[in-house]
């Protein structure tokens, strides 16, 4: 049982880091936060691999370490270099957003509570966290107006689903995981490329000003 509690504790840490990613105003800092958070994710994978004897997760943790802790933050930071560190505007006050974030975590726990499949019972907390994580990512994209912050939101979202995948489908064929990860990295890569072009065209990454196409 010790294993599950480690996993659950790490999962809570994950939520904290992701709230910090959402909450940090400096984009450079947020990117580093994301890197740290991915590290937590990797350690969850590792502990799951150890405690649940899920060998495939060793490979997962290695690939996640490479892509999420280093590659994705690197891509973001490189883009930041070209566009300059940006102060972002947001539509919600900090208190309100924290409140909403907590609400989402609660929602995730309620959703998970309704699952009955036996295999999932042991790691319910972690599962709820993964779903909450997904929702937080979504929340970040919806309420933050800076394009790079939205990319970070997408990364959170992606981390959430990655964790769900690890919890429920760690025994899936490796090809699947590789396919999904490749997609994620490419998505971030392409988004940063487009974000640079947005910056070139509009001189800002504030998506509220990108309104040439309407209706």
């Amino acid at each position: 049982m010790a294993g599950t509690s480690v996993v659950n504790a790490l999962a809570v840490l994950l939520i904290l880091t992701s709230m910090m990613v959402v909450g940090t105003k400096k984009l450079r800092l947020a990117a580093y936060m994301y890197s740290i958070q991915s590290l937590v994710l990797v350690s969850i994978f590792l502990s799951l691999a150890i405690f649940m004897r899920a060998e495939p997760l060793y490979i997962w943790s290695v690939t996640a370490l490479i892509t999420k802790t280093f590659l994705v933050p690197y891509l973001l930071l490189r883009t930041l270099k070209t566009v300059g560190d940006q102060e972002e505007g947001m539509t919600l006050k900090t208190t309100a957003s924290i409140f909403l974030a907590v609400l989402m975590v609660a929602l995730a726990f309620v959703v998970v509570g309704s699952f009955h499949t036996y295999a999932l019972l042991k790691i319910k907390v972690a599962l709820a966290v993964s779903i909450a994580h997904f929702l937080l990512g979504l929340f970040c994209i919806l309420t933050r107006k800076n394009a790079l912050k939205q990319i970070l939101g997408y990364c959170l979202l992606e981390n959430g689903s990655h964790l769900t995948l690890a919890l429920t489908a760690y025994n899936a064929p490796e090809t699947v995981e590789i396919g999904i990860l490749t997609d994620a990295v490419f998505a971030v890569l392409i988004m940063t490329v487009i974000a640079r072009r947005l910056f070139k065209g509009f001189g800002t990454l504030d998506t509220d000003t990108h309104t040439l196409l309407k209706g």
Binding site: A147, I180, M191, I194, A195, R197
Partner: peptide, 23 residues
């Protein structure tokens, strides 16, 4: 400028949507 904007919306929204599909 408009094509960058269109492409941005396209990639962002579809990626989010597809994250749901992944779930």
């Amino acid at each position: 400028k408009t094509s960058a904007e269109g492409a941005w919306k396209y990639v962002l929204l579809c990626s989010i949507g597809l994250a749901f599909a992944l779930y």
